[in-house]
Each structure stands twice: as structure tokens, then as C-alpha cells.
Amino acid sequence: MQVMSFGRMAILTDPTGAVFGLWEPATHNGWQVVDEPGAPAWSELMTHDQPSAVTFYSTLFGFTVEDMSSGGFRYASLHQEGVAAVGVGAYGESVDRAVPAAWTIYFAAADVDASVARVVEGGGAVVRAPRTHPTAGSHWSPGRSARSSRSSRPRRRPPEALSRAPRVGPAHGAARSTSEVVRTLSA
């Protein structure tokens, strides 16, 4: 579907039933700001059939796969040119098979606790409270690698990188609206 002069999009489902969007940029490249509160930080898919989803997305986009599974938890980080792009995890055995596969988008927050409080004040609800990750630290952002560093300025992807960037995740229009809401709540 053509979206004015911005680009073209499609909404699809993968073999596990997860809805995702594709974006072909024209005048609007998509996400350009990262490592800034309110900017998209990570996307991950949770599904009952994680191996099929990993195969599907790695084949579709040419991702390389880093298996991060441990114990009873199955998870893979899918990489584009050596950089983590998205994650794909398996629902645990206790999750009802009727729960559909779903993508989740994470937004960067300078203070997760303060942002959660603002979400609740704004009428949202807490599905999973902030927690400390055993190796990544307090209020971790799953998309931030150990080698990434914070700076006082937001990072912007150069236009040439955008043309190679995979367009996986929520449909552009929905993501933009959600991002604007999160930026308002994080301000």
C-alpha cells in the first residue's frame, strides 16, 4: 500500500501467526533516532513455535542467528551485518496455547520507574513490572549491547544505513503513534 509520498507498506503474518509490517522508504526512511528516551530500542517476537519463526525471519531478511537459550528458556537474537536487530523467544510451557504470537516494541527510557508511573497516571497498565536483569543491570534495554555507549546527543542512523536496514516490527503508522505517546509520557 502506498502511504502518500512517504513510502510503501504491507501488513502480513508469519507462519506462527504473528502480525508484522514491511516498510519500503521513499521520502520517510523510518526510525532514525536511537538511544534517546521515546525512541524505539528493541523489538522481539514471542511465539509458541520459536524455531519456525527464527527460520522464517532469518530466511526472509538474511539475518544471522545467535542462540541465547538457557535452562528452559528459548531465545535467539537475529543479527543484520553483525548487529542485533530483533529477538525471537518461545513462550514457556505454562503459557496457554491460545495466546497468539506477538511482536513487542520496547521504547528507550531515561528512568523506567518514572516512565512506568507516568504510564499508569496516563491510564495505561503494568503488564510486567521493571526488573533488574542479572547480567545487563537495572532496568535493562534488551536492544542495548555491552559495547553501546550513552551520549548526551541522540544517535541518528545515516541515510545510507537506512536503505539497508531491515523493516521488521509494527506497521509504521502504529509505531509512530505509540512513539509519540511514549515521548509525551517520558517528557
Rank of each mutant, 00 (worst) to 15 (best):
G137N: 09
G89A: 14
F107N: 01
M68N: 09
F20G: 01
L78Q: 03
G21Q: 14
S58D: 04
Q50D: 09
V120Q: 08
D49P: 00
S145V: 09
F20C: 03
A171T: 07
G137H: 09
E180F: 01
V112W: 04
P15M: 10
E180Q: 04
Y57W: 09
T27Y: 06
E93D: 13
G123R: 07
T59E: 15
T135C: 00
A108D: 12
T47P: 05
R97Q: 15
H133V: 03
A102F: 14
Y57I: 00
S145Q: 15
H48Y: 14
E160T: 11
P170S: 00
W31E: 08
V112S: 01
A101V: 05
S179W: 01
D113K: 00
V127A: 12
P130W: 13
A110E: 10
D113F: 04
G38S: 06
G82D: 11
P100D: 10
F107T: 06
Y75R: 01
F63M: 04
S145M: 14
M46A: 06
D111F: 14
V95E: 07
S115A: 15
P15H: 12
S115P: 00
R74Q: 10
R97P: 15
S77C: 07
W103L: 05
V3P: 05
S186P: 02
A41K: 02
M4C: 10
G123Q: 07
G92K: 04
L185F: 12
T16K: 04
A41I: 06
S149T: 15
R150M: 13
D96C: 01
A39Q: 04
R74V: 02
A171W: 11
V19K: 03
P130H: 10
S58Y: 08
E180A: 01
Q32K: 14
S148I: 04
V83T: 14
R157Q: 03
G7R: 12
V182D: 00
A165D: 09
L60A: 11
D49E: 04
G123S: 06
V95Y: 08
R147P: 01
V116I: 09
D67P: 00
P37H: 12
S77D: 08
V120W: 09
P166S: 08
G169R: 05
A165H: 12
V34W: 13
G87T: 10
F107Q: 00
